[in-house]
């Protein structure tokens, strides 16, 4: 340690030594640690959609468009369990009608959102399949770096229940960063 450096440290200790330690301790209560500040690299973003999600806010498009190198995968999952219940209780014709309608709605929604992304210069991949809205997203999330979810994904929300239980389950089981809008 040079002459100047040791002089500064002596002066610092005399002027503010212990006060700084106290302040630092107080800041640590609400500032992120070095480890938490490391921003993860985002190469692929999974965005599950369904009939409940409503409109996607413009800030989400803006935020996701900043990840230039990331692929965006839009996934529309039709609840397979609901389909089977309809098939077993109301018959094949009704369930077939339900499937067609769901597939049509899903495709329209996927195309609409994909178009919005294309307007920002991003070409997302789209997928539509039958499955479990919670379990399948948790499984798919393992292969992606970020998950973007509507708080109404998987279930209607109300004033008293502002977060879908499906979303709650997903965020509790995935290890990647999640944006809930």
């Amino acid at each position: 340690m040079g002459l100047f450096s040791s002089l500064i440290q002596r002066k610092f200790k005399n002027i503010a030594g212990r006060r700084y330690e106290r302040i630092l301790k107080e800041y640590k209560e609400f500032l992120l640690t070095e480890e938490e500040m490391m921003l993860p690299e985002i190469k692929s973003i999974l965005m599950p959609l369904d009939r409940f999600i409503g409109e996607i806010p413009p800030e989400i498009y803006e935020t996701l468009s900043a990840y230039n190198d990331a692929r965006i995968i839009l996934v529309y999952i039709i609840d397979a369990h609901v389909f089977h219940v309809i098939e077993q209780t109301l018959g094949k014709d009704i369930s077939e009608e339900f499937r067609k309608k769901e597939e049509n709605d899903g495709r329209l929604l996927l195309e609409k959102i994909a178009k919005n992304f294309e307007g920002l210069g991003i070409s997302p991949q789209i997928r539509l399949f039958f499955g479990d809205k919670g379990e399948d997203v948790i499984k798919l999330a393992e292969k992606h770096d970020m998950l973007v979810l509507s708080k109404a994904y998987g279930s209607e929300i109300t004033k008293t229940h502002p977060l879908s239980p499906v979303v709650l389950k997903i965020v509790q089981h995935v290890d990647i960063p999640v944006i809930v809008y």
Binding site: F4, S5, L7, I8, Q9, K11, F12, K13, I15, A16, Y20
Partner: peptide
């Protein structure tokens, strides 16, 4: 100068503790 005022000493002292060197 770096030792001209107490504020200078305090900021440079904190910086040094955090691994940021501001020489005289």
């Amino acid at each position: 100068t770096a030792i001209g005022a107490s504020a200078n000493v305090v900021v440079i002292g904190i910086a040094e503790r955090e691994g940021i060197r501001i020489t005289f």
